[in-house]
Amino acid sequence: MPEQPEVSIRNLSKSFDGIEVLRDVDLEVKSGEVVSILGSSGSGKSTLLRCINWLETPDRGEIRINGERIGLQDKTQKPMSRRELAKVRTQLGMVFQSFNLWPHLNVLRNVTEALIYVQGLKKSDAVERAMAFLHKVGMAEKAASYPATLSGGQKQRVAIARALAMQPKVMLFDEPTSALDPELVGEVLSVMKDLSSEGYTMIIVTHEMDFARNVSDQVVFLEKGIIIEKSAPEIFFHSPRSERVRRFLELDKVV
């Protein structure tokens, strides 16, 4: 029996105001795999990622996390209740481009909040787990600081710890370094690289070509909502099948 994919996306389509941003997207991500999604802006890559945890509601298609359907009831095809949705979402951790930390809570409480009020952990257990993950991203000594006092790179590392602390099966990264000053990109990428070597399953929307080349197991290229290339990084970056990807890579070199 073939191994069940951790994330499976079938025939996913999505339009905004009649404009199709995703068309019949298929993608399978195996456990421990790192998948980078590339494409120019407006190609639908963020929408694809946001559909995976149902922050966007697709028009058609199905998404399964470890075989479990997200968004719609398997039998009736009716939308899930918020509670059911929240339960499936616990398998997914999400990291946003703009960090989205909660400014009224300090770093530690940003991480413990969902552990206590969603997962129902005792406070002492939540703090212990949060500190372990803050340590992992190198932010333990900032536990008492408020987000407003942190640099972008530090904020994003806290956001990663916050997502990791929920112990999801899959981590979703939506352009995690795009809002960062160039000198802060490295610290975030290095945390992500560590995660990939620890065997986390990761789906990453990114513009960081070197990172995609060195860390991914699979590179996906989206263009106008269609996957036009899906291959291993060696193939993708050296002998892409499509002319469009070749042009995209050349432009990247010129810049």
Binding site: L55, K87, R89, G93, F96, N100, A114, V118
Partner: peptide, 8 residues
């Protein structure tokens, strides 16, 4: 969105 993604 961050809160929703965390299951709140």
């Amino acid at each position: 969105e961050a809160a929703i993604a965390q299951g709140f």
